[in-house]
Design a binder for these strands. Structure first.
Lengths: 339, 339
DNA sequence: AGTTAGCACTCTCAAACCTTGAGTGCCAAG
DNA sequence: CTTGGCACTCAAGGTTTGAGAGTGCTAACT
């Protein structure tokens, strides 16, 4: 009985605060919600909630504001993902459906997410680490230079140029390509280092320099280039908080400029198809300690290839944002699998 | 005589205002600069300068602030590009010298520019429109799918996949590649549409579908993909102005998110090796009307391939910024020509 | 002529002060 | 356990005041 109402009060507080961005008091609560009790009773509940750390008062005589912990409880137990309206779904479908190549898909996705949520959107390119090599090709550029092209199943194409001490020999290249093809085709990137471990043993000694150079280059691509690509959008929405809310966006902008931070942000997405939410101080990075991050993975059912999401203030509309992120992730998954 | 001192006064005002970001008064001017006259005399000059529109007073009893027109005069006549210190040159050299591939060069450049100038940095990838095709290659992906790879002299590699109605024939492809090679190798992109105009005539009728598809795809790459790539960095520096100066960064962030705007910004760079400066309202876009843009082209001596620059407040350190932008552009040019 | 000192005037900024109102916590009664 | 009543607290907004910075003007000086 009492427990139940307290949760209802917390829910109402979060909803009101998200809507108005102003501390919410007991009077307003009973006005705007059918709680069936008087403000005084609500005050008692609020005192209890504050005691337990779910809400806090900015100062003696203001209303209450949810804490990170309060939002957490709200997200975990009190909010349900609301399905998008058919119109929204159709809009997403149409906008993303027009995309031509991978770059286009990523670009459109980030703009779409930013626009729908009115927040900063973050979209990661399909991760090489979780992709498979589809093909490998060589293009001799000059006598001593070879371009290696890796075609990846997610649609990405990686290329790299190798400098070789000795002139390239066509037949050797063909041989190398054939064997490499067998060795790495349709294999996950993560398994490639192991697969190429003793690869050079199959070749005669005089072919080793070239083989080594090529393998080294591939390994470099496979490991180094794993610093994935990320696109960002909607940063101008940040300026809004700055004015309305008294919070500096500098640290946030700084964090968003760091690829490393973004990668970790998206990388920490729970390994499930569900949407993941990190609230305020749950974020590892100090600069993001007053923001919430809503992410989801996309890709095949059980084999996500990357993540996307949005970064917003902690007083974000969790239900709406979560559903949008989830929907967009699903659409991107579908579009990618169609190619 | 009188003209000369007035200019000196304007110069001093700009310098002081850039340094302090506060309106500068007659008293402070004579204190900080050796003008050899009394404040009262300066006041007369200031009144004249205001009359002519070079400076303005925020309110009755504050000092003066340069107008866009004032900055313009300062940049054109009163400031000289100061050479970088050897230490700075060395720093640039070392940092950019480590770059591996084109992506790396661009990424490092934008970070470097942002860090050196403490402003938002904008770097455009070498423009395809001003590049030359170095090679063209085909990779059959499936029976009906062909990947076309364009290797560009600036280091970019463009790829595109063509869907073909008929199965691909190896010999036809080889033939096509050979002829295309002759037709477009070492030619500027801009000339390609013309060169491919009647290209299909050389082939037998039954080969036309494939030839058409390939040509269409190349033309598409050549024209559509011309929406160039641009990287952005140092946006967090914007937050600083927001706090110190009372100017909203929202419109600026919005403008910076629009590829189109950025492209135009960089595209308008004067066609010379010199640094170009656009001040305040000289910028076409309303969102950037309180910012200054300092850009320079980079590339070969007489054949620039793209532009880079920074976006900052109108009260930016023009001399320092211009020299930094110029130096970075030169280094990037050198590094690119080395490959 | 051009330059200077002197002076009255204007206007912003910051501090001090007051008032208002929202919201709380507690208590005693239902 | 709930509720109405009441005293209390505190932030926010408005007003007043004083100080300070800077200007424009005039009259005298070189």
């Amino acid at each position: 009985m009492l427990e139940e109402r307290r949760l209802a009060v917390l829910k109402a507080i979060v909803q009101d605060y998200v809507a108005t961005h102003e501390p919410v008091g007991s009077k307003g609560l009973v006005d705007r919600h059918q709680l069936g009790v008087s403000p005084a009773t609500i005050r008692n509940d609020m005192a209890a909630l504050e005691e337990e750390g779910y809400i806090t008062a900015p100062h003696t005589s203001a209303g209450r504001v949810p804490t990170d912990q309060g939002y957490r409880l709200f997200v975990d137990q009190l909010s349900q993902i609301k399905p998008l309206s058919p119109a929204e779904r159709k809009g997403i479908d149409r906008f993303l459906g027009e995309a031509a190549d991978l770059d286009d898909v990523m670009g459109r996705t980030v703009r779409l997410l930013a626009q729908l949520t009115k927040q900063v959107a973050v979209v990661q390119y399909p991760s090489l680490a979780r992709s498979h090599v589809r093909r490998i090709e060589f293009i001799p550029v000059t006598d001593h230079k070879l371009m290696i092209i890796l075609i990846v199943d997610s649609g990405r194409v990686e290329q790299r140029i190798v400098d070789c001490a000795l002139p390239l020999q066509e037949d050797l290249l063909a041989e190398l390509r054939a064997r490499l093809s067998v060795a790495v085709s349709d294999q996950p990137f993560s398994s490639i280092p192991a697969r190429l471990e003793n690869f050079d043993q199959e070749f005669p000694a005089d072919a080793r320099p070239l083989v080594h150079a090529v393998i080294a280059s591939i390994l470099e691509t496979v490991t180094e280039k794993l610093d994935e690509r990320i696109v960002l959008g909607g940063t101008s929405h940040l300026a809004h908080y700055n004015q309305v809310f008294a919070m500096s966006i500098q640290p946030v902008l700084e964090a968003l400029e760091e690829q490393v931070v973004l990668l970790k942000l998206l990388g920490e997405t729970a390994d499930s198809q569900k949407v993941s939410v990190r609230i305020g101080h749950e974020n590892e990075f100090a600069g993001l300690s007053s923001t919430s991050v809503v992410t989801s993975q996309y890709g095949k059912e059980n084999a996500p290839v990357a993540s996307l999401g949005v970064v917003g203030p902690t007083h974000i509309d969790y239900a709406g944002t979560m559903s949008t992120v989830q929907a967009v992730a699903q659409y991107v998954s579908r579009i990618l699998s169609e190619n």
